[in-house]
Nucleic acid binder design. Structure first.
Lengths: 218, 218
DNA sequence: CTCATTTAGTACCGTACGGTACGGTTCGTT
DNA sequence: AACGAACCGTACCGTACGGTACTAAATGAG
């Protein structure tokens, strides 16, 4: 395609965006002033406006820049064994949790959500397209591979994905967005990744391939 | 206790808070100016500051006021039949979804999340205590009743509740917070309430009481 | 009727931020 | 060496908001 995707931002601009992300993480939106970004990044406000148009352009650029850093590597091509599928699901859940509990992700989500109520919610849409989109696609591909390998049984991949997501994340994302410390949340997460995958397989595993029909309760 | 809980706000103050909530819903946080609230509610800024201290106090009062409106009725006392438990779970899930997709709830969550990054996250804590707390307690009581009636099998009620919540809500709450229209989301929700309850019962139903060990996939 | 309290309405102040303009400097090109 | 582009630093402007002070009207008590 004609989108190089790498030189969307020059190195200088990337450094500025990185600095802006730092400011956002540690101070929230109200700390993200144009003057503050310029000072922190050792650049001039004039350059900011030349590069990003206005403040909203800067915010959008921050989201696009952060999204460009996550690589959406395709995990599976051929057939899967039972153990491979389970391992891949576990990896996906853990990666998902790592991303969601990341401070940059939380800060950007807070930013987008905070201004979603007002004008249009442009940032929210960006966040959904650039953030959730790729992650969902990756998961759907994995689930589809599981089905093609005869290990999973579902008709609507989106529905299955939502179930997996819900089992893995539950309300912890919103609670973190509301201020629950990521450490506390991560502790809860850790013990839940395996249970989520087990529960998902219990719900969507092809009947004859998974001999344990329900998860164990200690 | 010495907290009447009803006269926490005078009728006049309640009317003002109602007006403030309207402003917040339709314009987001940036539309919620002290002058705007005073104008919309036909009161003076001075009264606002006298009643609520400062702007943050007003925001906190809005959350407390909205929380005071949800009644946390105790649904069950005695033993439950299988059908009753399922019906109660379905009702809980539908109520939960209605609350989460309500415009006032979304606006208040956006407000709390938007300022959670910055100073302290006082509003976020309020939101967690006053909003999630009662709902979770109600669900836990229901789940416990189900267990006492021999219909559910779990050791950690919180864990079971999180599973139910995740199955019911998945990522739709965050997506609505990011700007997905509540109508679109509610359409997804409707078809998911029953699947969520079925999946939950499939996971946590006492083995000998629920003859269908796994949900059906059309 | 009179006085006291409360509150609406308004005017005002200080500040902080978004956005712009300008002088000075660095760096690459010819 | 001379020129020009890009850019940094800063100063500046307009505005909008949070918060306060003051006046006038309304309401209620004695």
């Amino acid at each position: 395609m004609s989108k190089p995707e790498q030189d969307q931002f020059s190195p200088r601009q990337s450094a500025v965006l990185e600095e802006a992300l730092s400011l956002l993480v540690e101070g929230g939106e109200k700390a993200l002033t144009t003057a503050g970004v310029a000072r922190a990044a050792n650049c001039s406000k004039e350059s900011l406006y030349k590069w990003f148009g206005d403040r909203d352009g800067l915010l959008a650029a921050m989201i696009a820049y952060q999204a460009s850093k996550v690589r959406t590597y395709e995990p599976t091509g051929g057939k899967l064994t039972r153990e491979e599928l389970r391992a891949h699901l576990l990896t996906f859940v853990r990666d998902l949790v790592d991303v969601l509990s990341g401070e940059v992700s939380l800060a950007l989500n807070r930013l987008s959500i905070g201004q979603a109520g007002a004008g249009g919610g442009k940032l929210g849409r960006l966040m959904l397209e650039r953030g959730r989109g790729p992650i969902g696609k990756r998961a759907m591909a994995l689930l589809d591979a599981g089905r093609r390998s005869g290990l999973l049984d579902f008709s609507d991949g989106g529905e299955a994905y939502q179930t997996l997501y819900g089992l893995a994340v539950s309300d912890l994302h919103v609670r973190m967005l509301l201020g629950v410390s990521p450490e506390t949340a991560r502790k809860e997460f850790g013990s839940r990744a395996e249970r989520a995958v087990d529960a998902f397989l219990s719900l969507y595993g092809a009947a004859n391939k998974w001999e344990e029909p329900r998860i164990r309760h200690a």
